[in-house]
């Protein structure tokens, strides 16, 4: 028997995925603004942030209604809780994209410090993590979610490498301190986005299997 709240849950998922799409698009555009030196794209990211924020509020409202009106159990309950948390992560990703876009506007006022090699690589991995985390949600695919978790180390390594490299540039030439510092911030932002994608993947595993993989060191009985 199909229960009528499944319609509500499907709408909730639809909206969450829509918001995920908005967040992915924001991150991608913000990074492109830097890589392609396109000030206009940076501005678009700032303008589109409202859409993400509005969607966050709508999803929150829906979560509250679903929880209040339907006494959800087991997988349904875990799904709504996961949606609620993922909603937060997506909104934070949107904020990070805005940070990157603002950094981009500052970076573009200076000549390019160096050819970008690791930055595109890093953003590609991070965007892939976001996409896969949301795909894992749709497909209830724990293996895919696990692969997102395993990619987090690569992102951390890339961030460290970008830090080291840019610090070298800053020590060599004080005129690049401003843009290089913003590039460091940008790497930091991307790394945070990777962390949020990791959180989403963990929530997916929780939703599908009821297993909390966030802090293996914490003993649960």
């Amino acid at each position: 028997m199909e229960r009528h709240f499944e319609k509500d849950l499907n709408e909730l998922k639809e909206r969450l995925l829509w918001m995920g799409g908005l967040a992915e698009r924001a991150v991608h555009q913000a990074v492109q603004a830097v890589l392609n030196a396109d000030e206009q794209i940076a501005q678009r990211v700032l303008a589109e942030e409202t859409a993400i924020n509005e969607m966050q509020i709508e999803i929150d409202d829906r979560v509250v209604h679903v929880l209040a009106l339907h006494q959800l159990m087991a997988v349904d309950l875990r799904f709504v809780l996961a949606v609620s948390r993922i909603n937060n992560d997506l909104e934070r990703i949107g904020d990070q994209a805005v940070n990157i876009a603002q950094a981009a506007q500052r970076i573009l006022r200076h000549p390019r410090v160096k050819p970008y090699v690791d930055l595109p690589k890093m953003s590609e991995i991070v965007e892939g993590m976001m996409r896969d985390a949301l795909n894992a949600l749709v497909r209830r695919d724990v293996v895919l979610a696990q692969s997102v978790l395993s990619r987090d180390d690569q992102v951390d390594n890339l961030r460290d490498q970008i830090f080291r490299e840019l610090l070298t540039y800053m020590m060599g030439d004080s005129s690049v301190v401003y843009p290089a510092f913003d590039l460091i911030l940008m790497a930091k932002n991307l790394e945070r986005i990777g962390d949020h994608a990791t959180n989403i993947a963990e929530d997916v595993i929780y939703f599908v299997q009821g297993r909390d993989v966030r802090h293996p060191a914490v003993d649960r009985r």
């Binding site: 709408e11 639809e14 909206r15 829509w18 678009r44 303008a47 589109e48 409202t50 859409a51 709508e58």
Partner: peptide, 19 residues
């Protein structure tokens, strides 16, 4: 519906209207 007045593309196109 998310307000998309400032952007050139409608960010909510294709999404069913929320009651």
């Amino acid at each position: 519906m998310p307000s998309t007045a400032n952007s050139s593309v409608s960010l909510a196109a294709g999404l069913p209207a929320s009651p």
